[in-house]
């Protein structure tokens, strides 16, 4: 069942020069209940802004258009009070840097229980639920930890507390914005396992934002590959990474050594990511694309279905699908 249906989402951010910059451009995808949709792209691809638009926390001055269908209701058309009530209870978010995202002057318990207190749950019940939430995300000795402050937690524990905070309101959709990027590698793996376990045990739906293809391959069911604010390709994660229908996806896959066969050395993606301030005409990827030809420089490709469930925004996706190599 479709939980969140994003249709033609565009976000304009004000820039220093005054002109509005399109950081998200006509993005469409869906998140299904009980499954994880990964959002992957380089920095500046608009993946974080997409998540922020979903939860309604775009920076001041940003303007947003399109549709965000959530349980039969377009959240983008809803009034601010309705959007606010949806936060925490229906849609919750985990941020990249748990130290910065937690209030330094409040105890962990207070912060994790805040959504419940907001809804008027009695103190004793809040404490019970907070203890259970901390236990569930693997914070050891929750009865002691509940009264401690973020700086007394290690990085991994902080992110676990952040996850407990987001889960406390039992949201139907969890947005995770690079939840492991700020953590040590060993801690990363454990936090990823925790998120996977949550999904397996409770069917928690997630929109998982990451620049790391291995992380997405590990946790996601569906993947949306973003480039320069637009969707390059989307589909089931295994199919997309095994047989990319967009040269950008293929370049991403080939730039990761562990995902490929051992014989072929990893190929880093040439060039720099397209800046939303100066997006190339036609297909934004054409300056870095080995398949680029005249049409790519002139005509902007639309996202189209190539096979059931597989969408791509490449003029020559059929060649790619047929196994053509430059």
């Amino acid at each position: 069942m479709t939980l969140l249906d994003v249709r033609g989402l565009s976000v304009l951010l004000p820039s220093a020069s005054g002109a509005a910059v399109p950081v998200v451009d006509e993005v469409s995808f869906a998140v299904h209940s009980g499954s994880v949709t990964g959002l992957i792209g380089e920095s500046g691809s608009g993946k974080t802004m997409t998540a922020m638009a979903v939860i309604g926390l775009l920076p001041e001055g940003a303007s947003c258009s399109g549709e965000l269908w959530w349980a039969g209701e377009d959240l983008l058309a809803a009034d601010p009070a309705r959007r606010r009530r949806a936060r925490g209870r229906e849609i919750a978010m985990i941020f990249q840097d748990p130290l910065a995202a937690l209030n330094p002057s409040q105890t962990i318990g207070r912060q994790v229980g805040e959504i419940l207190r907001r809804d008027g749950l009695p103190r004793a019940r809040v404490r019970e639920r907070v203890l259970a939430a901390l236990e569930r995300v693997g914070v050891p000795d929750p009865a002691r930890r509940i009264g401690q402050y973020p700086h007394q937690f290690s990085g991994g524990l902080r992110q676990r507390a952040m996850i407990a905070l987001a889960l406390a309101g039992e949201p139907r959709l969890l947005l995770a914005d690079e939840p492991t990027t700020a953590l040590d590698v060993t801690v990363q793996a454990r936090v990823l396992d925790l998120l996977r376990r949550l999904r397996a045990e409770t069917g928690q739906a997630m929109l998982f934002v990451s620049h790391d293809l291995r992380v997405i391959a590990h946790v996601a069911d569906e993947v949306v590959v973003m480039y320069a604010g637009r969707v390059a390709e989307r589909g089931p994660v295994r199919q997309v990474f095994r047989a990319p229908h967009h040269p950008y996806t293929r370049a991403l896959v080939e730039s990761v050594p562990a995902v490929r066969a051992k014989s072929v050395p990893a190929e880093p993606l040439p060039g720099a990511p397209a800046s939303p301030l100066a997006r190339p005409a036609g297909c934004a990827f054409h300056p870095r694309c080995p398949l680029a030809r005249d049409r790519c420089r002139r005509e902007r490709p639309e996202v189209r279905a190539l096979a059931p469930g597989r969408h791509t925004a490449c003029h020559f996706a059929e060649e790619l699908a047929a196994g053509a190599r430059p």
């Binding site: 606010r84 941020f95 912060q111 987001a166």
Partner: peptide
């Protein structure tokens, strides 16, 4: 401008609740 303000907003708090509950003390 601190990130914990975004966290507070993501909990569905109103702006006055964010200000008084999280920003003022810090």
């Amino acid at each position: 401008r601190e990130l914990y303000v975004q966290t507070a907003r993501s909990k569905g708090l109103t702006e006055p609740q964010v200000l008084v509950g999280h920003v003022l003390r810090n």
